[in-house]
Design a protein around this nucleic acid. Structure first.
Lengths: 140, 140
DNA sequence: CTGAATCCACCAAGATACTG
DNA sequence: CAGTATCTTGGTGGATTCAG
């Protein structure tokens, strides 16, 4: 509606750091990346070894995740021209630095996840008490 | 439930611990949560204040994100029955504990994001130089 | 001002089958 | 063994509109 468009250049320099966190989270915060990194944190693994370590991942997602990690320089891919083919994946130096913040996150999760679950249960209870909610159950 | 499994050490964290990290990341690792938490980390804010602080977020996403955080007990919601209505959002004690791992993540991002970007650029160059590797794009 | 509700586009992700 | 190709689907998130 604003025709002349009051050029409100919303510069947010102070929250630029939050952007960095957000972008990083967008990279490593997907469904499988941390699990793959966790599996590789114990040492180099072959393709199917990673697959077995990360239970439930599909071939497609494993390939995509590994490719993304390789692209970001977090994982190195080594092909041995043998038969049958063998491909090793290993955390790079850069990738290993990720383990520390991941462990911090793990510590937080272990310490506060029960509280979060409790809060969620309490929240659900306050919204669906089961004792006072007519007009929805229609018992008749 | 064998009570003698106390020998399970952190050597194999890929089953339980990484799951916890993954689940936690699934909660706070979405597009806006960390930005909202970051905005609220400086103190309580009203709805539109958060909206302005987190530039680019839509009302829908802000509401959903805040509701999710409230449900998880990370953010408290205070309604002032005034006119016009006023709603304050504030990090709870639990929510404030999130700041620490977030700062760790921020530190990692600041330290290693350049390396990641460089690795990605290098990777892209090795794959699409335009001069070295012709016809790699599977001419169907 | 603070939401809720609806519609819709996009993409992550699973399943499956095929290749080298 | 180590991937790739294709189809399909469910969820995420954006834009817009309505309501208290």
């Amino acid at each position: 509606m604003s025709d002349t468009n009051t050029l409100v250049r919303d510069i947010e320099p102070s929250h630029d750091s939050c952007r960095a966190v957000s972008e990083t989270l967008a990279r490593i915060g997907d469904k499988w990346t941390v699990l793959v990194v966790g599996a590789l944190s114990q040492g180099p693994l072959r393709y199917n070894q990673v697959r077995r370590a990360v239970d439930g991942i599909s071939q497609r997602m494993l390939t995509l995740t590994l490719k993304g990690l390789e692209e970001d320089g977090l994982v190195s891919r080594t092909v041995y021209p043998t038969v049958p083919p063998r491909v090793d994946y290993e955390l790079t130096e850069l990738g290993r630095t990720l383990i520390v913040p991941l462990q911090v996150l793990h510590g937080w999760a272990m310490a506060h996840r029960p509280a979060m679950l409790a809060a969620r249960a309490k929240f659900a209870e306050s919204r669906a008490p089961g004792s006072q909610q007519p007009a929805f159950t229609t018992p008749k």
